[in-house]
């Protein structure tokens, strides 16, 4: 339990730094990959908190968050593949 309580602030600071890059990313792709890594790390944080709370019923949220973050990536990539021309606006 001591290890978990010590490593919780590292995760919180990392979440805030990922969110800063997600806010001010120059292109949409920067925000997308930053929020994607944020979702995966929140999934790992939920697993660690389920050990801290000692309840294995809390683990299902981690599985769902890892799967739907992948859907977010695919949606943004599909927008650029289908609906813009190749070599177009440079992502803006």
């Amino acid at each position: 339990m001591v290890f978990i309580i010590v490593s919780i602030p590292l995760y919180i600071v990392a979440f805030i730094l990922y969110a800063v890059r997600g806010f001010k990313g120059p292109t949409v792709f920067d925000s997308t990959i930053s929020i994607d890594a944020l979702c995966y790390d929140v999934s790992a944080f939920m697993v660690i908190l389920s050990v801290y709370f000692r309840s294995y019923l809390l683990l299902g949220a981690g599985i769902l968050l890892a799967l739907w973050a992948y859907i977010l990536d695919v949606v943004i990539a599909r927008y650029y593949d289908r609906f813009t021309r190749i070599g177009g606006d440079g992502g803006d």
Partner: peptide
């Protein structure tokens, strides 16, 4: 995402 970024220039 990297493929979409490269193809969009």
């Amino acid at each position: 995402v990297a493929r979409a970024a490269y193809r969009s220039g």
